[in-house]
Design a protein around this nucleic acid. Structure first.
Lengths: 191, 191
DNA sequence: CGCATTCTGTACTTACAAGTACATAATGAA
DNA sequence: TTCATTATGTACTTGTAAGTACAGAATGCG
């Protein structure tokens, strides 16, 4: 009944994700996204709303990707300890070397002073809460593995902090072995 | 022999620090700094160079402040364990509640896509290295307090990661008690 | 006092990015 | 085929911020 869209919104979101992740929200212009995607600005506005709204969609997509992976890894059978170690270890490629330079889109965006802070914080908070829930649930389920004084709630928080710290320091492109050594040491808390 | 400067550069750096910290590099305009400081743009350019250079001076000042404090706290007599606990605990006001929202200027700036990344990374790297050196030195000096397998080098890295993680998550304004609980748990690694 | 020198304030240029007006193209339905 | 409807592309407006030209003010020195 009307002219169909000539592009796949998911493709554009994927391109925008890479660009926002690489350069940040503010430093990425819609003109650049237009150039990379081949989709003109009025179409972007029609499909996604303004730049803020586009970014929030990109961020949700990013969050969903990480959460999906976390669910898969943390749902594994076997000791909670090993599931969590594997989850943390999986971030090493994103926390070290050249690829680490861009850090984490979620953490990065929290500082961008031109984003709508209210919406942004809600999105990030939801993401952090879900991630922490996954960790806590797994730790509680594996309680039998740990000593009597073990506190799964605080430990889940601590792992979140370590995870955020590794990604915050990733911009410095640390050596992968050092990152691994830190993870190994932190795993000592799961006892 | 010429007209003297009518403002104190340190005052301007202090004002700029607050503004950059609150809103980020890109979102803070020189016009705003002019308005807050009462110093006109040509004077800013003459005194500090362009916006990048001004920011780097502000960042160095910020780094020096934290390093100075860390040196004081970590040079304390007594157990290394307590010195480090006190150092970490001292960040709680900056990692929680309303004041935590702005996070850490150093971590925040690492993501800003419009800064000169080369100079910026050098500055941050120097800062991180010096901080880690302070921690490592103190841990090595207090070796007698710890068990035989204790690794002061990796532990210094881990503390850096936890520190960065707390400040990265600070934007979500977590509860101070939760932050403290995480620190307490991490202190368990110093044994 | 008069002069060289450096700072200050106003007002400007330039560049770039967000968002939009409008004419046109592509579809499904009647 | 014709129309209603929605997408597209060009070109525009608007706002804002970085950086600067230039005239004038404030100092020390001779």
């Amino acid at each position: 009944m009307a002219r169909p869209r000539s592009f796949d919104p998911d493709d554009v979101l994927e391109i925008a994700r890479q660009m926002f992740w690489q350069k940040g929200f503010q430093a990425t212009s819609l003109d650049e996204i237009t150039a990379m995607s081949g989709v003109a600005k009025p179409s972007l506005y029609a499909a996604f709303g303004d730049k803020n709204a586009l970014f929030l969609k990109v961020l949700d997509r990013y969050h969903d990707g990480i959460l999906g992976w976390a669910e898969r890894v943390l749902a594994q059978p076997g000791p909670a300890r090993e599931a969590i170690r594997q989850w943390l270890t999986g971030f090493i490629p994103y926390c070290s070397g050249e690829k680490g330079q861009r850090g984490c889109l979620s953490i990065n965006s929290a500082t961008d002073g031109s984003l709508d802070q209210a919406e942004l914080r809600k999105s990030i908070e939801r993401y952090n809460r879900r991630l922490e829930d996954l960790l806590r649930t797994r730790l509680r389920a594996g309680r039998a593995e740990f000593s009597k004084g073990f506190d799964p709630d605080v430990t889940a928080q601590t792992i979140m902090v370590v995870h955020a710290g590794l990604l915050a320091l990733a911009h410095q492109r640390p050596d992968a072995r050092r990152v691994k050594a830190v993870i190994d040491q932190v795993m000592g808390l799961l006892a």
